[in-house]
Amino acid sequence: MLRVFIVLLGISSFYCDAELVVSDATVRLLPPGVPNTAAYFSIENLSKKTEVLIAASSNIADKAELHNHVFINDMMRMQQQESIQIEPGETVHFKPGGLHIMLFGLNQKLEENQKVSLRLLTQDGEAIDFEATVARPSHAKHH
């Protein structure tokens, strides 16, 4: 009986160690015919280890990439990120002018308040699935 308890305690701790929580997820609604858009959200690392995001995907786009806005030669440009590190207890905000997911090759027309599926993949192979609400840029909530 004691062995079962110790095994269950170990399994419980394993699942808690990889807890990433996504909130305030939105996808920017752009005019019809624009083939690309961006997704924004906050992600909190509730685990006791550093988590590393390495990829993204969505049911509404042919391709999704982790991006950031960076200054290059005194100009703001988007740059693909190979990884994004989230320290224990840290919340990282994906927002306009900063980190975001670029969605390339939209495969459907987006409508305001539509729910879309997004997935983040960690370096450890964990998938974080979440929904985002399509919103006009002025109505998107970013904290």
Rank of each mutant, 00 (worst) to 15 (best):
E82I: 07
D24N: 15
T50W: 05
L103V: 09
I72Q: 14
A39V: 02
L103P: 01
V7F: 10
A135M: 13
A56E: 05
G89A: 07
A64V: 07
S57G: 12
L118K: 07
A55Y: 04
E19D: 08
R77Q: 13
A64R: 03
N36L: 00
T37L: 03
V92L: 11
I6R: 11
P137D: 03
V4M: 14
G125S: 07
L29T: 00
H143M: 05
D24V: 04
H69Y: 10
P96M: 08
I72C: 04
G89Q: 09
L8K: 13
L66K: 00
I60L: 04
E82G: 07
R119V: 13
Y15T: 06
L8C: 06
S23W: 03
M102L: 13
E131M: 07
L66G: 01
V34K: 08
A39N: 06
H100N: 13
I6A: 11
V27I: 15
A25F: 00
L106V: 12
H143S: 09
V22Y: 02
Q108W: 04
V21S: 15
G97F: 15
L46P: 02
N36A: 15
S138I: 04
E87P: 02
A135E: 06
N68E: 11
F41D: 01
L2Q: 12
L30F: 00
H142I: 09
L106N: 08
K49C: 11
I101S: 00
E19H: 14
F104Y: 09
R136D: 06
E65V: 06
I101V: 09
I60K: 03
S42L: 06
H93D: 12
N113A: 04
K48E: 15
A127W: 11
L9W: 14
D17T: 13
V52F: 03
V22R: 05
L106R: 12
L20T: 11
H143C: 03
K63L: 15
L8D: 05
